[in-house]
């Protein structure tokens, strides 16, 4: 795994896998300027370069306003960077596509569709026949733990259930990369933990590439192979930390593991440093 760090080049990933992982996403000197008012420009992202390897679970961690979601949106093709470019498998990203599936904090489900209708939407759009799309979708709904809720509308579901539907809806069209934008940010602590566990279980089956934006240190360490720590004003990559913890990870074992604890403590300290306001949200 090769990462192009913003500052430190001494960082080298310990070799854990023999086969050379290939880069799936390359972010090359991306900057993003937002015009906040007629006079002032806000530099949301400054010269970000990052390579993400196929099959890696990478978290982007940082304080509010560091541009971590913007970076995700650029990879998604929802936002065009002011300068620099993002590439997916060597191809410049010019817009959204089914190879990159987003899951948003706001769920963004289609409220007029049932759970099944939401999950089937992507496959149907891709031209999968109704019967086949339905069978696949039902299996996915069962996988995310919502069997029996197929005919429910989103408004009838809790936040955690909605996010499960959103995950199933995105998995349904088989994106090569999952783009998760603080997906558990709107959920209560207990639901959040359960969804983290379930996401990890699902992920460990097929090891899709995941880019996961969060401001929770535990979440980032628990889930990721690699944590990209960002600082704000302007948004920069401060550090890329390899999380060298064995998989499959089980929460009850990991929380007691001194290595896990050290990662959390170290990264939290780093987080305090980058977030001058001191309000770790």
């Amino acid at each position: 795994m090769k990462v192009v760090p913003s500052r430190s080049s001494e960082w080298v990933r310990p070799v854990t896998s023999q086969k050379p992982a290939s880069a799936i996403i390359e972010i090359d000197r991306v900057s993003q300027v937002f015009q906040t008012s007629a006079r002032k420009d806000h530099l949301a992202l400054s010269n970000i370069s990052l390579t993400i390897e196929e099959g890696a679970f990478v978290s982007i961690l940082g304080p509010s306003g560091c541009g971590k979601s913007t970076l995700l949106y650029i990879v998604g093709g929802f936002v065009n960077p002011t300068s620099g470019a993002a590439k997916m498998k060597g191809q410049a990203i010019t817009g959204p596509g089914p190879d990159r599936g987003p899951v948003f904090q706001e769920f963004a489900l289609f409220p007029w569709k049932t759970v099944l209708g939401n999950v089937m939407y992507g496959p149907r759009q891709q031209g999968v026949r109704v019967a086949e799309a339905e069978a696949q979708s039902r299996a996915l709904i069962e996988m995310v733990g919502l069997k029996g809720y197929e005919s429910f509308y989103p408004k009838e579901l809790s936040g955690g259930m909605k996010q499960r539907v959103a995950l199933a809806r995105t998995l349904a069209y088989h994106p090569e990369v999952l783009l998760m934008d603080e997906p558990f940010g709107a959920l209560d602590a207990h639901t959040r933990t359960r969804l983290q566990n379930d996401l990890l279980n699902i992920w460990e089956r097929d090891r899709k590439t995941v880019l996961f934006v969060t401001h929770s240190v535990d979440e980032a360490v628990f889930l990721s192979d690699k944590v990209v720590m960002m600082s704000k004003s302007p948004g920069r990559i401060r550090e890329v930390i390899d999380i060298d913890l064995p998989r499959p990870r089980r929460r009850n074992e990991l929380l007691l593991d001194p290595r896990y604890q050290k990662y959390v403590v170290d990264i939290e300290r780093m987080f305090d440093e980058v977030d001058e306001t001191g309000s770790v949200s």
Binding site: P96, P98, F104, Q126
Partner: peptide
């Protein structure tokens, strides 16, 4: 955006 990612 979700729709765009599905190819709409």
């Amino acid at each position: 955006w979700s729709g765009a990612a599905m190819g709409l």
